[in-house]
Design a protein around this nucleic acid. Structure first.
Lengths: 258, 258
DNA sequence: TGAAAATGTCCTGTATACAAGACACTCATC
DNA sequence: GATGAGTGTCTTGTATACAGGACATTTTCA
């Protein structure tokens, strides 16, 4: 079931939609859009009638799931959505354990640690704990990031067929922030290597000064359900990296099923 | 508009509800309930028809806003709800600044720092950063906590009339975790004092070994929109506490409007 | 082991929520 | 100050989503 895409364009009179579906479309669009949007523009983007959009957005706003910026009327996610969402990371077994483990890892190593999953066939940092280095703090938690940009992404695709991978990765996701293009064959090979090694190290992908060291979290069926990873300065000594890797793999094992 | 309470009990045939409202009821109930619940029990709790509840919950589950525990079928908040919620704290101006300030405060003082707001006429920790002490980490972030249990709560009620306060505070919220009962008159007086002082200190309320030092964050209209606070061991020296208070007030000013 | 309760799915009629469009405003822009 | 685009509110008719209930399982526990 496609969540966000508006119904197929036909000449037939527009199908009536259930408000549930409209709500899900609104939320998903807002999340993907990445910034506030005004109601009119939202209705147009979803190909939804303006009147229905008004009532729904107003309902959700009154409930606090959305907020409307008082100055320009743009819609954002609201406080209540945030509070509801916190329940997930507090209650979900894996998320809860992973959060604690990330905190522990960051504290012990002093390095920025992250817990990551796939969502929508994109990569998402679910939880992050910054390290002690005076680095910039990444504010990418919860955002959707192209899978090929990350070490975790290579692990998360482990076990999938070539066709599946090609299907999953959009063309533009192969282009790095600095404009370089990742070759799909190299990428698929890297996935295989990562799978065999049981970890993955990428250098200077998203930016030139960091490397990313990721380890898999296996689900009950032996699939890679999530990853835990360290964001490191690129110029570490080999023995430092090796020590960090061993420590990371320990966390990886602790979080994996069985 | 009451969010969670089911419609008034009449003998008239049940009013039909819009699915928007049902959804809001489901989410709010789940949040307040604090743990997973099965669909049947949910329908009963909301006084909603079972069939409608099934379809709605299934829709929300497919969308990832809810999750159903595979073993016993209980409903929880889902991954997508969490990701949607993260947008709030990333985009909302106050929440964003407060998060950075809390991180800074925790780092500088080494003490557990929190950003708090009212929600539903209950008190909620919106964001927390643990300090360096080997304390237990509170996992109360996002939960609804009785206002009288906290220093922040006293600040957040500043400026409200006695009647409003009595209206707001449920009887049972005056009872502390250890069974002691807070006198409503003392509580109202403490609110006035907190308002005049521009900060609030409470000792040994929620547990015997901590004190809580809170400062207001003023909104544009001079109202207390939120608070920022420190959770400290109860046996600090006066001069230590004073220094922390000054530092806290600095953050308070930085976050307040104007 | 049998009865009672709960779970999940499906079907149907009708109360009503949605789509469409009208209307009165408010901004921009020329 | 005229034009066009967008905003927010209301009203109305009808397609349909919801409430109710039936049914086949599964679970509970006496």
């Amino acid at each position: 079931m496609s969540l966000v895409s508006p119904e197929q364009e036909t000449d037939a009179p527009q199908r009536r939609e259930r408000s549930v579906d409209r709500i899900l479309q609104i939320l998903e669009f807002l999340h993907g859009h990445g910034e506030g949007i005004r109601i009119g523009a939202l209705a147009k983007a979803l190909n939804a009638p303006r009147s229905s959009t008004y009532t729904l957005v107003n309902d959700l706003t009154q409930a606090g799931l959305l907020e409307i910026a008082p100055d320009d009327g743009r819609i954002f996610f609201g406080k209540r959505m945030y509070l509801y969402g916190l329940n997930y990371i507090r209650e979900n077994s894996l998320a809860k354990r992973a959060r604690l483990e990330v905190d522990r890892l960051a504290k012990e190593t002093g390095e920025t640690s992250e817990f990551c999953m796939l969502q929508n066939s994109r990569y998402t940092i679910m939880y992050m704990r910054p390290g002690n280095r005076p680095f910039r703090i990444s504010s990418a938690v919860g955002l959707q990031i192209p899978i090929p940009w990350t070490a975790s992404g290579r692990l998360l695709l482990a076990g999938r067929s070539r066709a599946e991978i090609e299907e999953l990765i959009a063309e533009e996701d192969l282009v790095l922030p600095d404009g370089r293009r990742i070759d799909i064959d190299d990428f698929i090979e890297a996935i295989g290597t990562a799978r065999n090694n049981g970890y993955c190290l990428t250098k200077g992908l998203v930016d030139a000064v960091t490397q990313c060291l990721a380890a898999p979290i296996y689900g009950a069926e032996g699939n890679v359900e999530a990853t835990i990873c360290l964001v490191l300065p690129i110029n570490l000594l080999d023995e430092q990296t090796a020590a960090l890797r061993d420590r990371l793999l320990q966390s990886s094992r602790a979080l994996s099923s069985r």
